[in-house]
Amino acid sequence: MATGGRRGAAAAPLLVAVAALLLGAAGHLYPGEVCPGMDIRNNLTRLHELENCSVIEGHLQILLMFKTRPEDFRDLSFPKLIMITDYLLLFRVYGLESLKDLFPNLTVIRGSRLFFNYALVIFEMVHLKELGLYNLMNITRGSVRIEKNNELCYLATIDWSRILDSVEDNYIVLNKDDNEECGDICPGTAKGKTNCPATVINGQFVERCWTHSHCQKVCPTICKSHGCTAEGLCCHSECLGNCSQPDDPTKCVACRNFYLDGRCVETCPPPYYHFQDWRCVNFSFCQDLHHKCKNSRRQGCHQYVIHNNKCIPECPSGYTMNSSNLLCTPCLGPCPKVCHLLEGEKTIDSVTSAQELRGCTVINGSLIINIRGGNNLAAELEANLGLIEEISGYLKIRRSYALVSLSFFRKLRLIRGETLEIGNYSFYALDNQNLRQLWDWSKHNLTITQGKLFFHYNPKLCLSEIHKMEEVSGTKGRQERNDIALKTNGDQASCENELLKFSYIRTSFDKI
């Protein structure tokens, strides 16, 4: 039985969820670079991206490699990797027998973001014989899940209580170790020597080791999670996991709180800001991140802002960003909400898709409305799209047979046209069989910064309504002859009103 693990408890099935942008060198404390989270699957090609990484700022997932063999891993080693800020997950990587050479110096898994409450997941690794993470000293947050690894031993010899604050939620089941077939031998045991430290858990006094050649490092209890030197002297209180010299914040392997210019500090002093819960960055760093993602459509890219001495992905609820200094300031009234469309555009074809934009005031991208039916549609669209004030790209209304009016965009005031449909149009209306009105132009103002209007096959939309939009939106004169079809717009509506004058002759039985 794995020490510190839980057996036999019912657990939810383990679901495996399925960018080499360097964020800056980590400095003297770390020998390499800070790398983003990685999802490495199918083959070993991307694994080489770990070569210079000291910190993975995010998670590391290595999974679904069915053609790899043990010899493929023999020359692979990433000794610079010290810390993973989120979680480490391995799933069905064939041929991998140990992690001792792959990650010989991995010391800390912070667990800032977890995989279903777990910071370390080893699942269905069919050839893994031992973990071998002999320098792993601290899992700051989260638990361990090690399950269905039929060859995995050296679990009962690990004292997880020396690595985690609590072992109650560890789930370590259905491994070879369960069948008591392992016969784990710690260093020196074969020669009758006791080389590794022994600890007591559940009444068992057991030597602690990761492999037959690597003991588990056990520091004096007084050192807590700070770690200790090879001689057993406690590291500085700002260290986490390990250090090369005692009581020196510049000799830590990793930091308990924050890293700044080669030393570990309790908090980031001005003019620095907390970033990702582990390091200090200056304003320029946060500003660069903001600008890199301002026009990016890459998933996970955030326009970072500053709030409460932190550089964070977005302002919290009730705050909006001051564009001059990136500071989050309290909103006066309802907060603006910028919604970034991942692929640059979004099609609204149902109430469900409209709900995804609920509360958005600025759309960074283009909207395509293609709704053919739905219950209580006008009210639903207004509830979900009615706060949109600005669209950076274009607005396209296409084959939306259920629409009679666009009044559900009740606050839309600006279409920038930074991206144009077919390279020309910022407003595009095609084949809307029941569209009769755009907006009530006596109450609604709309500016279209650039781009043209396109109207074709809107049989109940009168040309007068379209011409009014040209005047109000500032697009009059931009359109070419064929942009607004004269014969297919309003051709099934009563669009022309003329005053009919009647004269009559009164007659009676005795007068003409």
Rank of each mutant, 00 (worst) to 15 (best):
H28R: 07
L29P: 13
L29N: 08
E33V: 06
V34L: 06
P36Q: 15
G37S: 06
I40V: 15
I40G: 00
N43Y: 05
T45L: 12
T45F: 05
R46M: 14
H48D: 04
H48P: 06
H48Y: 05
H48G: 01
H48M: 15
E49A: 07
E49G: 04
L50S: 02
L50G: 02
S54A: 06
V55M: 10
I56K: 01
I56Q: 00
I56V: 06
E57Y: 07
H59E: 03
H59S: 08
Q61K: 14
I62L: 06
L63P: 00
L63V: 15
L63Y: 09
M65F: 10
M65T: 04
M65A: 13
F66Y: 11
T68N: 03
T68F: 08
R69D: 01
P70T: 07
D72L: 02
D72N: 15
D75F: 11
L76F: 11
P79A: 05
P79N: 07
P79L: 03
I82A: 08
M83K: 03
I84R: 00
L88T: 00
L89I: 08
L89T: 05
F91H: 08
F91L: 05
Y94V: 10
Y94L: 11
G95R: 05
G95I: 03
L96C: 10
S98D: 03
S98C: 04
L99W: 01
L99S: 01
L99R: 00
L99G: 02
D101N: 06
F103T: 01
F103M: 05
P104D: 00
P104F: 01
G111W: 01
S112V: 09
L114S: 04
F115Y: 07
F115N: 01
F115M: 04
N117R: 06
N117T: 03
N117V: 06
A119V: 03
A119R: 00
A119H: 00
L120E: 00
L120W: 01
L120Y: 01
F123N: 06
E124W: 03
E124I: 00
E124Q: 13
E130Q: 09
E130W: 12
L131G: 02
L133I: 12
Y134S: 09
N135Q: 10
L136A: 01
L136N: 00
M137D: 03
M137G: 11
M137H: 13
M137N: 10
N138H: 08
T140V: 12
T140A: 11
R141P: 01
G142P: 00
R145F: 04
E147V: 10
E147R: 01
N149I: 01
N150I: 11
L152K: 01
Y154L: 05
L155S: 12
T157N: 13
T157S: 07
T157L: 11
I158R: 06
D159S: 11
W160G: 01
S161T: 14
S161G: 08
R162S: 06
L164V: 15
L164R: 05
L164P: 01
D165R: 11
S166L: 08
S166M: 15
V167L: 04
E168A: 11
E168V: 08
D169P: 13
N170R: 07
L174G: 10
N175M: 06
K176M: 11
K176Y: 15
K176V: 04
E180G: 07
E181L: 01
C182G: 04
I185C: 08
C186V: 04
T189K: 04
A190Y: 14
A190F: 08
G192S: 13
G192C: 13
K193C: 15
K193T: 10
T194N: 14
N195C: 07
P197N: 15
A198N: 13
T199G: 09
V200P: 09
I201A: 14
N202L: 06
N202W: 08
G203D: 09
G203E: 15
F205A: 06
E207L: 10
C209V: 03
C209D: 03
C209R: 09
W210G: 09
T211S: 07
H214G: 15
H214L: 11
C215G: 13
K217C: 07
V218C: 10
V218S: 10
V218D: 08
V218L: 12
T221A: 10
I222E: 14
I222Y: 08
C223H: 03
H226M: 08
H226R: 12
T229N: 14
T229G: 04
E231F: 15
L233G: 12
C234W: 01
C234S: 04
C235L: 01
C235S: 00
S237Y: 12
C239Y: 00
C239D: 00
C239L: 00
G241N: 05
N242T: 09
N242D: 08
C243E: 01
Q245K: 10
P249I: 01
T250C: 03
K251S: 04
K251G: 15
C252T: 02
C255I: 01
R256K: 10
R256D: 04
N257Q: 09
N257D: 03
D261Y: 04
G262R: 04
V265H: 00
V265Q: 01
T267S: 04
Y272R: 02
F275R: 01
Q276G: 11
Q276A: 10
D277M: 13
D277P: 02
D277K: 11
R279F: 14
S284I: 05
D288K: 11
L289Y: 15
L289H: 07
H290L: 07
K292L: 13
K294L: 03
K294Y: 15
N295Y: 14
N295S: 10
S296V: 03
S296Q: 15
Q299C: 07
Q299G: 06
G300N: 05
H302E: 08
Y304T: 13
Y304E: 01
V305Y: 02
I306R: 02
H307I: 04
N308M: 08
N309A: 11
N309F: 12
K310M: 05
K310G: 12
C315Y: 00
C315T: 00
C315E: 00
C315L: 01
P316Y: 03
S317A: 05
Y319F: 12
T320Q: 08
N322W: 06
S324L: 07
L327W: 03
C328H: 00
T329Q: 15
P330S: 09
C331E: 02
G333D: 13
P334N: 07
P334R: 12
C335N: 08
C335V: 03
P336Y: 08
